[in-house]
């Protein structure tokens, strides 16, 4: 910030006004998220089921280490994170920079179409994805007819392919969503910068890496943190596409926590402890991302 110092009085006042901007949002977050979170944190030190609980110290956190299903779900989530998030964000960036070309016609329709997947109802898209990847589905039909597969493959019944179906579904659903933020970020960049670079003989790739990406850095950071958070808390696809199967091979942490909280005999202490482990993992990753990407010039 390069504001000139014009007397402490004015600066202090401005600083005070700056805090005023934050008050409604911060108060709401404190009441609606932080206080319940602290209460949940306290709960995570109690053991027992239902209404019969007692103080358990760190035992819930120790229990996590022995929970094979939860450990499996951690692995699954990181698998999704490492493969899906980079592919999705790069795709979104490419699509956004293509759509930022003023010479392109029908942009409105194209943008809307590409945005649509995230607005598409989960119920419908889960059914259609399962139908597509079914043994007698379209994907198998194509793959067998061009000779990649000898016999139809039951994608959802095998551990690795089930996870890949989830990744494909996630990319399909969220690429357009992230593209929207890049598009809106690109609007704040003057198109003449591109024109100038092009006249200087810069290749499209150079323009992309030297101009687009640096200028979009804050937005990229935002989407990276949000996608990390979203993937580690993934729930919908695990429940609706594969139901965690086959044999927990695609179950996510949130799905398991939900099952343990509301489907089975409730263990609020244990599920809170698992939730805080998620918080810890996301926070560490977000911290690293902030360190790398949240520097002001």
């Amino acid at each position: 910030m390069n504001s000139k110092r014009s007397g402490m009085g004015l600066n202090a006042r401005r600083n005070f006004e700056g805090w005023l901007f934050l008050v409604p949002a911060v108060v709401l977050i404190v009441c609606m998220s932080l206080i319940p979170a602290v209460m949940a944190f306290v709960t995570s030190f109690t053991t027992g089921t239902g209404a019969n609980t007692q103080w358990g110290g760190l035992s819930n956190y120790m229990r996590i280490l022995k929970d094979k299903v939860f450990l499996q779900s951690i692995k699954n989530c990181f698998f999704y994170l490492i493969i899906q998030v980079p592919i999705m964000l790069v795709l979104a960036l490419i699509l956004a920079s293509m759509l930022n070309n003023p010479k392109l016609k029908c942009k409105g329709i194209l943008r809307t179409c590409i945005f649509l997947p995230c607005a598409t109802s989960l119920v419908a898209y889960a059914i259609i994805f399962r139908t597509l990847f079914a043994t007698d589905g379209l994907i198998n039909l194509v793959l067998t007819s061009i000779g990649i597969l000898n016999a139809p493959y039951n994608f959802l019944a095998h551990p690795l392919s089930a996870k890949i179906v989830i990744i494909i579904a996630l990319i399909w659903r969220w690429t357009g969503y992230n593209m929207v933020f890049y598009l809106s970020g690109l609007q704040n960049i003057d198109y003449s910068v591109y024109e100038a670079a092009r006249i200087d003989g810069a290749s499209p790739f150079q323009i992309f890496t030297k101009i687009t990406i640096p200028l979009l850095k804050p937005t990229i950071l935002l989407t990276a943190i949000m996608s990390t958070n979203g993937t580690l808390q993934l729930f919908d696809e695990s429940v609706n596409l594969t139901n965690g199967g086959p044999a927990n091979a695609s179950i996510t942490m949130s799905h398991y926590i939900y099952n343990q909280t509301f489907q089975g005999v409730p263990k609020f202490g244990y599920t809170s402890a698992m939730s805080f482990l998620i918080l810890f993992m996301v926070a560490v990753l977000a911290f690293i991302q902030m360190k790398v990407g949240d520097k002001r010039d």
Binding site: G245, A247, N248, Q263, G264, V265
Partner: peptide, 20 residues
């Protein structure tokens, strides 16, 4: 039983592994 859901889930995993 009280833990019907848990048992059902565990057996579902077992059944999936057995057929594989």
């Amino acid at each position: 039983g009280v833990y019907y859901t848990e048992a059902n889930t565990a057996l579902a995993t077992a059944v999936t592994n057995v057929v594989n």
